[in-house]
């Protein structure tokens, strides 16, 4: 039913990403203090939000799977788990590049980096379970681990906020990015990366569902 929308959706997402790249590299000026490295911020913040969306997708897939056992739930968990790991990796990598430039150290046990490091480990273990787990029970086991891992996320965030000194700049709100063009590019970057992530999630879920259908057809011998 949605096949006729594949091409337009893909083109729209490609256009948005291209527009973001143009804005970041050709339109927005350099930061006075950090120079061109500051441009990494536009990918860093958006990737963090995209990671949260992927984690939420895993949570939804897990809850619905335990209630209904629909095959799309397992496919959603598989896709969400991979994308959560991918975007957490991007956040960590961009954060460490920023940290090295701004604080002269790639990792300073700064609260938000620690948060994403822990999320990265949680979703690394989730993906390892998808690879090495018992295939018969994989959907159930992924759902349980997905729920536990997702509930750990707010806990990690709040615990670090309460226990650590805030070194990370307040980028969003409360006098973060001041330049209007930079602020506009930052917001555009957040929206684009979230949409890009949703597109990848949709696409990857479809691939996982197709794999399941192919496996089922292979049984009819």
């Amino acid at each position: 039913m949605f096949r006729r929308f594949y091409a337009p959706i893909t083109l729209c997402v490609a256009a948005l990403v291209s527009a973001l790249l143009y804005s970041v590299f050709l339109r927005v000026p350099n930061d006075e203090w950090l120079g061109p490295i500051q441009r990494i911020l536009y990918f860093h913040v958006g990737s963090a939000l995209a990671a949260y969306v992927a984690i939420f997708a895993v949570f939804v897939g897990a809850l619905v799977h335990l209630a209904t056992r629909e095959p799309w739930c397992d496919a959603l968990m598989e896709a969400g788990g991979e994308l959560a790991l991918l975007f957490c990796s991007i956040v960590l990598a961009t954060g460490m590049i920023w940290g090295y430039t701004a604080w002269n150290t790639p990792f300073s046990f700064e609260p938000r980096l620690v948060t994403f490091l822990l999320l990265w480990f949680i979703f690394l273990s989730f993906n390892l379970l998808r690879i090495f787990g018992d295939r018969t029970r994989l959907a159930n086991h992924s759902a349980v681990l997905g729920i536990i891992g997702t509930l750990t996320v707010p806990l990690v965030i709040y615990s670090i906020d309460f226990t650590q000194v805030q070194l990370h700049p307040k980028v969003i709100g409360k006098g973060g990015v001041k330049d209007p063009l930079m602020s506009e590019t930052l917001r555009f970057g957040m929206i684009t990366l979230i949409l890009f992530q949703l597109f990848l999630l949709w696409f990857r879920t479809k691939i996982a569902l197709l794999h399941k259908r192919l496996d089922e057809r292979g049984d009819h011998d």
Binding site: L118, F121, L128, F132, G133, V156
Partner: peptide, 20 residues
């Protein structure tokens, strides 16, 4: 227990969620 790498996978699954 049901996975292929029981002894190794268990700490990998447990430690991250135990951090908080």
């Amino acid at each position: 227990e049901h996975s292929r790498l029981k002894a190794v996978l268990f700490p990998i699954l447990l430690l991250p969620v135990l951090f908080p």
